[in-house]
Design a protein around this nucleic acid. Structure first.
Length: 118
DNA sequence: AAAGTGACTGACA
DNA sequence: GTGTCAGCCACTT
């Protein structure tokens, strides 16, 4: 799947470095709180889609270690519901931490539980 | 190599 | 409140 980027070696390295930063920010999200793709991305100087893309490619180990489920869309909606069963698991995990999620896959009282990275 | 796509967002109608 | 548009960056066709 991932071909060894022939030629542009710098691109691959830089990509890993950014990825590591994203994981660090995600790991720093307090329990019972959430943050957004945009906030995390802003903090790192990358676009929100890039954060989403990185979280979508977490390994099993990483997804087990990191609170990736504490990252939601800017309006509090669990965006990963599009990804199938992953969204269901994210909602379950959030509820297990005391974060209320409405029937419309939205974090209840979003403005109160959202966490600003940094 | 150009065009399409995505676990996104903010601005505007 | 919903719908469109443009910007975003990497990956896939």
């Amino acid at each position: 799947m991932n071909q060894p980027t022939r030629g542009a070696a710098a691109s691959g390295a830089a990509r890993d470095r950014v990825r590591a930063r994203v994981l660090t920010v995600v790991a720093a999200i307090p329990e019972g709180r959430v943050t957004t793709y945009g906030r995390a991305g802003r903090r790192l100087g990358i676009g929100p889609r890039q954060v989403a893309r990185i979280l979508a490619t977490l390994t099993d180990e990483e997804s087990a270690e990191l609170p990736w489920f504490r990252v939601v869309a800017a309006n509090g909606v669990i965006s990963s519901t599009k990804a199938g069963t992953v969204g269901r698991r994210q909602i379950t995990r959030l509820r297990a931490e005391g974060v209320a999620v409405t029937a419309r896959n939205t974090v209840a009282g979003f403005d109160s539980v959202v966490w600003e990275p940094g």
